[in-house]
């Protein structure tokens, strides 16, 4: 399937999901939050962060930083950013760097997210992802 780079060797049945990132305690205690529950059971944080959250589109990941301490620590780490980028590249076969930025819009207090793909020569066109008013409706905390 999509990312052979990470899942090429078989997972042993006796071990939990292999970690693509180094096994550091940064994302576990003391920052562990109550584990996510899916139905009647729980998925390990590691599986959720390294295998599920690395598959969430970049613009959505930004908002997920406000979920809990464990997620915030993990999603803002360099390791996660690298793993996420590699995963998206493997999945889309797209090696162009995409940057996301936040800038004031033309009017009043409004602001917007933009995504911009950088070509090897450094040029790129930004497209608007979401304006702040939409974002407020989405996040609604």
């Amino acid at each position: 399937m999509a990312d052979q780079s990470e899942t090429s060797s078989p997972w042993s049945c006796k071990r939990p999901l292999r970690s693509s990132m180094a096994d550091q305690s940064e994302t576990s205690s003391p920052l562990s939050c109550k584990r996510p529950r899916y139905g009647n059971a729980t998925l390990p944080d590691k599986l959720v962060i390294e295998h599920i959250l690395t598959r969430v589109p970049p613009a959505a990941v930004v908002g997920l930083r406000a979920v809990c301490r464990t997620w915030r620590a993990a999603l803002t780490s360099d390791r996660f950013v690298r793993a996420h980028r590699d995963r998206r590249r493997a999945a889309t076969g797209d090696s162009q760097t995409e940057i996301i930025f936040f800038a004031p819009a033309a009017m009043g207090n409004a602001a917007a997210f933009y995504a911009c793909k950088l070509a090897p020569d450094g040029s790129g066109v930004a497209r608007e992802l979401v304006s702040v008013h939409n974002l407020m409706e989405l996040i609604n905390v």
Binding site: I52, L53, V56, P57, A60, G63, L64, R65, A66, V67, L138, I139, N140, V141
Partner: peptide
């Protein structure tokens, strides 16, 4: 399933 959902 997580896409487009708020933190809360």
């Amino acid at each position: 399933m997580m896409k487009g959902k708020s933190a809360s």
